[in-house]
Amino acid sequence: MLTKQQAKIFFLVGTFVTFAIFIGLTIYSLQQVQTRLPEDVARGKHIWEKNNCMGCHTIMGEGAYYAPELTNVIERRGEPFVRGVLQAKKPWQPNGRKMVAYGMNEQDTNDMIAFFKWIGNLDLNGFEKVDRKVSPLAVDHMKDNVE
């Protein structure tokens, strides 16, 4: 039977080894991440954070699930649409759900757009694609309905 001492060794060794690998992988990954960004993107991120946009939306799949995923919003909706939402003086209200009216100025809007474009260009291992993925089944089904 396992003794308490053996169990303790299992804990210590397992923790030490996996932690060492974790740190190694972290260093390896971070070398490939862009750390210095264009200023407008960085400012955009700051605005994103200051207003807690993540409290309703997701970005890269993280946040709350009340409002749409924004990783690809520029590609999906186009820039003018997004500008309109950000600059709206009254709560934007698609499908009945209200967004806070930020009434952003020109500069802030530009920064936000830069931030979204930057995120939209990242390689997210296929996540951003799935957002608009249509299964073959559904394509057939939609064709039938049109005819």
Binding site: S29, M60, E62, I119
Partner: peptide, 8 residues
């Protein structure tokens, strides 16, 4: 500055 590192 990077959302990637922030999330990480």
């Amino acid at each position: 500055d990077s959302q990637v590192l922030d999330s990480f």
